[in-house]
Design a protein around this nucleic acid. Structure first.
Lengths: 339, 339
DNA sequence: CTGAAAGCGCTTACAG
DNA sequence: CTGAAAGCGCTTACAG
């Protein structure tokens, strides 16, 4: 069977292509009866308009893009990304928009090349961008390319918003975490963060420092890279240090927290009796660990949904908007239970 | 700046659109000099041909689709899917093909509706299909739709191959697992599998049964649904049973194995001393558990790559091909260490 | 409310 | 090797 086209439908019904098009797209310009006949026939033939023809004549791709630029090793093990992706896809499906996915290891150059190409080819109508960087070149690039975007997880601080974004108040999260540790009696803690080039990590570091200062607590910062091994090494280094050891460690993600737990075990230290630990990301790993690890649940699925819905709205209206993420929730578990 | 088009490039260079097109696509019909000038100008202008115009005139979308039809709860926690996705995307990127991703909960009807729509809209040139089912309606549907596909993870048994697929020899995997347990002295084991409507689960169940029979071992089969809780319930039910308890349990995935471990702990049974456990899927969960869980590593990244490359080849040649998956590897850990 | 026609931006026979 | 033209399958002013 040859592929049916809009011309074929028009001929079968004895009307013009224009009428078929109007009927299909809910446009005025056709009688209700005609519209019904068109829709019924399309249904009966299992026919859908060609997406490329439609994209070409409308100058809209009907798809948005997303570049996952993360270490392939991390991406498989960190459940955060899959949750985010699920939320995004759910929102896009509801908005009848396709998701184009590209994975490019941890390579900023390839990420930018992908945007240039997508923009040039008019392959997507907009993109979702992750992990705001210090001096992030991407907003300017995307503006120059004329490619609409939403930056997910930008800080809440008062930079003028020249682009659309979702924000998280990391100071609030830091307060939640530090207050919890303070209440449990900790006065000297370590903070094993992700790379400071991520704006959200810089904000977290500052948030932890300030809130700790507020309580008169001391903080040892330690920059790491989100890998299990990095968390392990950090704890080994921190607790070997000559100064008085810390009694609690905050980890920037669940993998590093797992690494930290392993390191404590190797060092012969008990958790939480000797050292308490807490993760800035919740996951099944935290729940299954022994002891189960207290974690800040950020609900990646919801975050993805909000970001995708914002992008759809931006594409629809052309407006620049900011959307705040829902508040995180601290899941208190054994790893910080009062000894 | 108005979007540049092929007509614009032609005018700038004083040649015809056809020459520009030939030059861009590496077709014969232009002098080397002309080709160089075209490519240089495109590079200089950061120009790429419109994907929708190209798709329309070539009648090829330049994209393949993938419907992830799994429980959203599982998908976030099971690392298998993300690994698969990474492998697929890597291969597609190398083949200059875009990936269209759709997630549809555990809903076969929505999955099929997505294929019908993609085929009708000519949105993708082919699809990757997962989890072969008993009496799977999808191959016939896709054939009827004229949508090329690769079925990933079909059984190796000698059904005539009327479509392209990647196969895994589950009998070999079953042998690996059962032999390992037999060597450790187990004579009565349980097999907590995923749903038997999945062909690969049916094959695994049969494989385990046959290999166990070969060794004169006894197997208690137990069908479950891949969830943590299912593994937990299965172990609780199995070890409460009046008959002589089993000394080892084989789980269909890592989550159920984790659930099983929790159940053992609740029952006051030691692993591996009282009951050994083994997972049919490896992951960080298995590595981090206490005790670490012996698991069959299936290398999802490699599987994804092979499947995607096969699909690209199928699209290219139109041939029907079968590709075998590389052999799985047993990661022996403490959960089956001889007591 | 309906029809004939131009246009979206490419590719590809076909003549020269 | 190059150019003029038709065609891919839609959408959308514009006349009637």
């Amino acid at each position: 069977m040859a592929k049916e086209t809009i011309a074929g439908l028009a001929k079968r019904l004895g009307i013009s292509k224009a009428s078929v098009s109007y009927a299909l797209n809910g446009q005025p310009g056709v009688s209700d009866l005609t519209r019904r006949r068109v829709l019924d026939l399309a249904e009966e033939l299992d026919w859908y308009p060609s997406s490329s023809a439609r994209a070409l004549s409308r100058s809209r791709a009907g798809a948005v893009g997303m570049v996952l630029a993360a270490d392939p090793l991390l991406i498989g093990t960190e459940p955060y990304h899959m949750g985010l992706l699920t939320g995004i896809e759910t929102a896009l499906a509801a908005g009848d928009t396709a998701l184009m996915l590209r994975m490019v290891g941890n390579d900023p150059v390839q990420e930018r090349a992908t945007y240039e190409r997508w923009a040039g080819e008019r392959k997507v109508d907009g993109v979702l961008v992750f992990d705001h960087l210090l001096d992030d070149p991407r907003p300017a690039l995307l503006d120059r390319l004329g490619l609409p975007f939403v930056l997910h997880g930008a800080p809440e601080t008062g930079v003028p918003h020249t682009f659309s974004r979702t924000t998280t108040d990391h100071a609030v999260d830091a307060t939640t975490i530090v207050d919890h540790l303070h209440a449990a009696g900790h006065r000297r803690i370590a903070h094993v963060s992700g790379p400071h080039r991520f704006v959200h990590e810089a904000e977290r570091v500052q948030g932890v420092r300030e809130r700790a200062a507020h309580h008169g607590m001391e903080v040892l910062p330690h920059e790491a890279n989100y890998a299990l091994l990095a968390g392990q090494d950090a704890v080994t280094a921190l607790l070997r240090a000559p100064e008085a050891p810390v009694t609690a460690v905050v980890f920037g993600n669940d993998l590093m927290a797992m690494g930290g737990l392993l390191a404590l075990r190797e060092l012969g230290l008990r958790c939480p009796d000797d050292v308490a630990i807490i993760s800035w990301d919740d996951s099944l790993h935290c729940q299954l660990a022994t002891p189960a690890v207290t974690a800040l649940s950020r609900n990646p699925g919801m975050q993805g949904r909000v970001a995708a819905e914002l992008l759809l709205a931006v594409l629809d209206t052309g407006a620049i908007r900011t959307e705040s993420m829902p508040r995180s929730e601290l899941m208190v578990r054994a790893s910080t239970a009062p000894g």
